[in-house]
Structure formats: structure tokens, C-alpha cells
Nucleic acid binder design. Structure first.
Lengths: 154, 154
DNA sequence: CTAACTTACTTGCAAAAAACAAGTAGATTG
DNA sequence: CAATCTACTTGTTTTTTGCAAGTAAGTTAG
């Protein structure tokens, strides 16, 4: 039997191929957690408040690793834990996430403060630069907090 | 029984809410077709080369309309046909689509010519402005062609 | 006027994926 | 060494998708 081509895409459109890689309800949330919240373990993803099931999470982590968007390495100080990290390809999703954030905050009722979002839309480039810096330097501080339904940053 | 809240979101995060609205393999392709290809009928979406099934397409069109991302109106010159169009909320997805396009073209093997994509990444603002102009003026000319696997624009 | 055709769907069914609830292996802590 | 913790896996049920037909309303050709 002729091996099915590894790249049997629906079409050659870049958007279509993106959606094949991470076009679902969960993948980009994992990327978000890694990118702006400083999460890097299975447990943290699971507790991030979205309610992903553990089998689905495991599957998504595998898929993202296979797509070379994240890497997985055993934690150096705790052998149980696995440290997930974005690759360069993964951090390049920052502009996509940022535009989703801006659109969502503008058009849907979210827990994100409007003022903060308006500012982010203005400072696009600065925020992307800061995101990348944090990634490069492994800065563990979150860039953004989780936005609960009634998030108040006072 | 207490009516289930209409906005029973997983979390208040704008990204999460975006994914609830169009986080699947098909929704953004319909938006793409409307935005840059000048498609506006059921049949055109169906024949756009991605292979969406008619029941799924019908479902997605309903969902997008319910989310106020598109509108549906009977065609003025052909009573069988329904004319779909992006709302303002829908055209505001242009930056998201553009970033997906750029990421996909950079990191995956696509049918889009690298040179063209590099140029688009540079002229982000101009392209977004042109996209919006086309939408506002109902310009029927496609901004981009479908990218087949061996697309050659010569 | 009407028969053939077109458009935008719907319906029924099988297959795949997601959600839910438990359980487990290996590392670690007390 | 017993209890705990982390990152999963394994069943099972429910939901979504994909595929093949079919249909209703509007249109065109004769």
C-alpha cells in the first residue's frame, strides 16, 4: 500500500494549514498559558481554569510537540515533572494570540479590563517585543494574569 | 429549571471566548473566503477547495450569523441564492487572518509564494486598510487567489 | 406552462473525537 | 517505607464530524 503522504493537506492555503495544526478549542490556550502566564507543567495547564480533560490535554501536548510548537523536557529539580516550553515557531504565534485577544476584548464580553485592552491594541509592537524578550530570557513572570469573569486588577 | 446562562463561558479570557466562537477547522475558512476571495454564496464556499461537507457548512454559517460575524440576505437578482457578507465584527477578524497567513507561510509548507508573503508581512497596515476598503465599497475583486499546492502566479 | 436544472439546504447513518470518571507508574516527601 | 504528587492511560458515554442521499423553492429552456 502506498504510504499516505505526510502532508495531505486540504489545500495549500496557509490559513487552512494553520487550522489543521491548531484549529481547535484547546491548542491555542496551551500556547497562551506558556506565552503570557508563565505556566510550563501539565498540572498548571490543567488548573488554568478552562476545564480541559487530562486525556485531551495529553493529546494536545503531543500534537503541539509533533508540530514543533513546544518542546518537552524533564524538569531538572523534580523528576516527576516535565517542563514544557515554546519553540521559536511557537513564540512566533504571539501576533496571532495578540490579535485574538484584541478582537475578543473588543467584540465579546470578557473578563479583561477594556482600558488595558485598548492600551495593548495601541502598543502592539512593544508588547510583542516584551513577550519575545521574556521568552528568550526565560523570564518566569507572567505578562498577563488570568482574566476571570470578574477580574479586578484594582 | 433555571435557564442556562447564555454566556456560560469556560473563562473570561478573550482568547478562550474567541475559540468558543470560531475555534474549529472551518469557521475561519469561511471568513477568509468572504474576506479575501470575494465569495459570498453557499456554493462558492462549498467549492473553495477545502472539502467541507454541506451539513457542516450550513451549521457553521448559522453559528457565524448567530455570533454576528456574518449576515445572510436573499440575493436581489436570484431568489434561490443567499448573499453572505461580513459584518463590521467580521471584518475586524482581518488582523487575525493576516497573522495566521504570515505564520503559516513562514513555518509550514504552503502553496503561497514566499516572496508575496514576505511582502505582506512588511505591508501589514496597507493590506489591512485595503481589505477594509474592499469590504466597505463591496469591491468584488479578490484580494488573494486560492493557493493551490503548486500555485504559480507567474 | 412545464420539465429540467440549480441553489441552499436537511436527514440518516457510521466514524471520529471529546468529555467524564477512574486508575496507574514512577518520583518524591515525611 | 507509606503517603503523596505528577503526568499520564484506560474505559465508557456523549457529542461532533463526515458522507451519501434527498428535498423544497426558485429559475431557465422549450
Amino acid at each position: 500500500m502506498p504510504a499516505k503522504s505526510k502532508s495531505a493537506h486540504r489545500s495549500g492555503c496557509p490559513v487552512s494549514i494553520c487550522l489543521e495544526v491548531f484549529g481547535d478549542r484547546w491548542s491555542l490556550l496551551i500556547v497562551r498559558d506558556l506565552m503570557v502566564r508563565g505556566y510550563h507543567t501539565f498540572k498548571e495547564f490543567q488548573q488554568s481554569g478552562e476545564g480541559i480533560a487530562s486525556n485531551i490535554l495529553a493529546g494536545r501536548l503531543q500534537k503541539l510537540e509533533a508540530a514543533e510548537i513546544i518542546t518537552a523536557e524533564p524538569d531538572e529539580t523534580d523528576g516527576r515533572s516535565i517542563h514544557y516550553r515554546l519553540t521559536e515557531k511557537g513564540i512566533d504565534l504571539a501576533p496571532v494570540l495578540l490579535e485574538l485577544l484584541i478582537w475578543g476584548a473588543k467584540h465579546e464580553e470578557t473578563g479583561a479590563p477594556c482600558a488595558l485592552m485598548a492600551e495593548m491594541a495601541k502598543n502592539r509592537e512593544a508588547i510583542l517585543a516584551e513577550t519575545r524578550r521574556r521568552w528568550k530570557e526565560r523570564d518566569p513572570n507572567p505578562l498577563l494574569p488570568p482574566f476571570g469573569k470578574e477580574s479586578k486588577l484594582s
